[in-house]
Design a binder for these strands. Sequence first.
DNA 1: CGTGTTTTTGACTTCAGTCAATTAAAGTGG
DNA 2: CCACTTTAATTGACTGAAGTCAAAAACACG
Lengths: 252, 252
Amino acid sequence: MRIVGHSLSPLVARLGGRIALSKEDKAALLALPHSVRTVQPGDYVIREGDIAHSCHVLLSGFTHRHRMSAYGTRHILGIHGEGDLLNLPTLPPLPAEDFVQALTVVQVAAVPIEDVLALSRARPAIGNALWTEMSAEVSVFRAWISNMGRRDARGRIAHLFCELVMRSYPAGGSDGCTVTLPLSQAELADATGMTTVHVNRTLKILEQEGFIRRQRRRIMIPDWRRLKELGDFRASAWTGRRDRDEDVAQAD
Amino acid sequence: MRIVGHSLSPLVARLGGRIALSKEDKAALLALPHSVRTVQPGDYVIREGDIAHSCHVLLSGFTHRHRMSAYGTRHILGIHGEGDLLNLPTLPPLPAEDFVQALTVVQVAAVPIEDVLALSRARPAIGNALWTEMSAEVSVFRAWISNMGRRDARGRIAHLFCELVMRSYPAGGSDGCTVTLPLSQAELADATGMTTVHVNRTLKILEQEGFIRRQRRRIMIPDWRRLKELGDFRASAWTGRRDRDEDVAQAD
DNA sequence: CGTGTTTTTGACTTCAGTCAATTAAAGTGG
DNA sequence: CCACTTTAATTGACTGAAGTCAAAAACACG
């Protein structure tokens, strides 16, 4: 197991963004033993059934998490970006229930679960930060359930784009900000529970209506607040901050 | 804060079902300081925005967790049964993002977060069990995402019924088993992302096709395996066991 | 026994899926 | 740098599953 410089800094940034960490806490996190590997787009980071003895941390790039139905269709359950924990450190380790696949070139760190748990016991602040991170993840999944269940095509895509913005700009979106879409339209479809054809048409409509502007895989958001409203997007799960006024769509 | 006999035993049963706990661990869990309250159907257990200084454990009955969209529609994000943790113990406590409402008469225990976290630090097995419980919860949410996204009306209802069976019979379902439906058709609709009318028609079809038999709010499952197949239901998230052969629908 | 909720049904509409074909982009190798 | 292949995006015509509106029937409860 190679110890690599400050490669775990995305983890420190993530946890430190949730809970205040002392210098010693941060140093202890960076000092965790780990190995880093690079994964190419389309390759798997985690396969269903894998028993992970390490906690995988996404250092850079995007991945998606998916599951295959009994009928052979794919369903994307979430996307992950820099700083995300790709599997929850449980003891004993449990077999993975879904696939995690690289969307872009990706760097992943593997930290032995025992070390993560030992550190979180030794340093309460880190333990708390991990709990909070996990709780935020739960929050994101709930937002996805909500996104699938009670929104039309435009809203679903809008919500997903909002999430991408949050993952690309941790500080939050703004008018005119741009994101590179790491998903093909087929992947967008599997993530929103629609068909490729309908995704394509919906993108066209969103563009006509001025919610997005696009060229290639680059999406520009002219009016961030308007997009959030369309997608009924609540940023709190992604920011970690839970300030209501930022979240609630204007009711008027 | 009243200390009430062995009222926390559902918590012990839940955590002990995930991870082997020693007698001392179990005793320590039962000895956690807590108060118990009874909530009537329709009343809220947790309200959006509540800042919980306690960890709420469902001792008996069923609740659902929902969120209101900006347009005023309700979306049910999950149902909870005996032994479920209704909020994740984070420090500092975060405001709740959704409502938890009683479906039946319900008993809820409130345990101060500090005590939960202290115990999980003092007793690693309990800490591990809590992590695992949380991870199982994540797993259930993912199953819901999948349920919303890529299943038709029959499949969605079937999946929800499978979950209800698992929650009513922790040992697992069997042919001829019966569950009392704690949800009205309107609630079923909000939980599956459909309309009341369509839920009603789908129930009728499921009955005609022999997947369920019903009178009042009681649902009988003549063929458990067949229902699981229809709903592409993977029991692992609910059982805690992750044995694949039980999960995978027969492919033939 | 009346009142309010839940369930059921019918007629009609619409959003999204299906099938199939075309165009555009991105590689690949000579 | 250009033919050739492959993958991704786009479009059209048609179908179908689920939503909408509205009303009746059944049930639950004080």
